[in-house]
Simulated scan of single mutants.
Amino acid sequence: MSQFGLRVFNESGQLAMDTNSFTYQVIWQGVIDFSGTVPSYTLNIAGFNPANCVFMIIPTRAQDVQSSETDGSGNIKSYPFVTVSVGQVVVRFRNPSATASTIGSRVVAKGYAIRYAV
C-alpha cells in the first residue's frame, strides 16, 4: 500500500508531524519585496490567528541567500522582521527598535500565511 504526504521528524528522530493526522490551509500568499524603498507591509489576513497560524518567508532570488554566517553582506540578506496578531501580519525590513542608520533587508521573498489544525 502506497503512502502519500509529509512526515517531519525532530532532532531525536521521533515523528513530530504527519499529514495523515495534521491538516493545513494556505490562507494568504504574496510577494514581499524589499529591493526598493518599501519600509514595511501591513497585511490584513482574514482568519489569521497566531494560536493556530504561522507566517513564513521564503527567498525567491539566489542572491538573497547568505552563503555563510560570515557573509559580509549582513542585514541586506537577512530575513525581514515579522510581527503577528489576530487578523494581521506586519513585515518590516528591519527591527523596529533599530536605529535609522541600521541597514535593512533588501530581499525579495514569497510570504505565506498558513492555518493548521491537529
Rank of each mutant, 00 (worst) to 15 (best):
V26K: 14
E69L: 09
S21C: 11
S67K: 08
K110R: 13
F22I: 05
Q3L: 12
D18G: 07
S73A: 08
M56T: 11
M17T: 03
V89W: 00
I76E: 02
V91N: 01
S21F: 13
Q66V: 04
S101G: 05
V86F: 03
A100D: 12
G5E: 10
E69P: 05
G36M: 03
I45R: 00
N20L: 14
P39Y: 06
P59S: 09
P50A: 03
S68R: 02
V108Y: 02
G30E: 07
F48P: 00
F55R: 04
C53V: 02
V38D: 12
I114G: 00
A98H: 07
I103E: 08
D33K: 11
S85H: 05
P96S: 04
D64T: 09
T99V: 04
F55M: 04
I103A: 08
I76D: 00
G47H: 08
Q63L: 13
N44D: 14
V84W: 05
I57F: 05
G74R: 12
V38L: 15
G13D: 08
Q3I: 04
M17Q: 03
F4E: 11
F22H: 15
F9A: 02
T102D: 13
S40P: 03
N20R: 13
S2W: 08
E69K: 07
V90H: 01
W28H: 12
P80Q: 03
N75V: 01
I114L: 10
P39C: 05
M17G: 00
T23V: 11
V54D: 02
D71Q: 04
D33E: 10
F93R: 13
S35L: 05
Y112F: 15
S21V: 10
A46G: 13
V8A: 06
